[in-house]
Amino acid sequence: MTMTKSGSRPTRPIRELVQCFRNLSVQLCVPPGGEADELLQHLRRMGCPASNSWPPPTDTPMGIDVVFISIRHLIEEQTPFHWNVEDPPSALIAIADYENPLMVEKILALRAQSTIAMPLRTFGVLMDVLLSVANFKRDEERRKQVMRLEEKLRFSDKIELAKVALAQEHGVSHDEAYAMLRQSAMENGVTITAVVQSIIASQD
């Protein structure tokens, strides 16, 4: 690690950033020719595995880290672009040729991590890609955290059902019922989840 000019925060050496970029697999979804070819060649010159596909594939191929999508062609040609905004498969970078409400609305609807403007300026593409991947990974971790919390809440409700069932069956308090759940799990060498599911299944 190196230090910033202020000496207060460590930053990643530029070699690590470049190596990270070269390990990324990029899929362009842009009509071939002109600036699309220029962008593709620029990515490859920097050592990034990149390919182009138009129209966009129905499903993003496995192992793709970043997708570039031409917003203008999606709008003008009404080209289908199957993108799961709730659980995207990779980072998404929107390519915008001009500014208008339709284009802004489309980019927001797709929840792109970044936008690059045309005509293409190759300077900054490296940073756009790295920042998009970083933002995507951060958002992905947040989604996973939310899913874990939701699952925890769902299982908490199941524990309460199992505790009520045991309390009624054995005439004990809810705290004692929970102690029984833990004891049963230890004696049988299984998780509390398995014990709770077994009790709920027997009640059903």
Rank of each mutant, 00 (worst) to 15 (best):
A162V: 07
E150Q: 14
F155T: 04
E141H: 08
Q27D: 01
R138C: 03
V30E: 02
Q168H: 05
E38P: 02
I95F: 00
K144D: 13
E99P: 01
Q27S: 05
V66P: 05
Q19H: 14
R182Y: 06
S8P: 05
M118W: 12
M180I: 06
A96E: 03
G63I: 02
Q168K: 12
M3I: 14
T191D: 08
G124W: 15
R9W: 12
S8E: 15
S51H: 09
A185S: 09
F155V: 02
S8T: 15
T122W: 12
S90F: 00
P13K: 08
I64S: 07
K144Q: 14
T58S: 11
L39W: 05
V133T: 06
G171V: 05
G171T: 09
Q19Y: 10
H82M: 07
K144I: 03
A165K: 07
V67I: 04
S114Q: 14
K106N: 02
R22S: 09
A194N: 08
M46S: 13
K137A: 04
S132P: 10
H82I: 01
V190M: 11
K137W: 10
I116Y: 03
A112M: 06
A112I: 05
R138H: 11
W54S: 00
K152W: 03
I14R: 11
K163Q: 08
I69W: 00
T60Y: 00
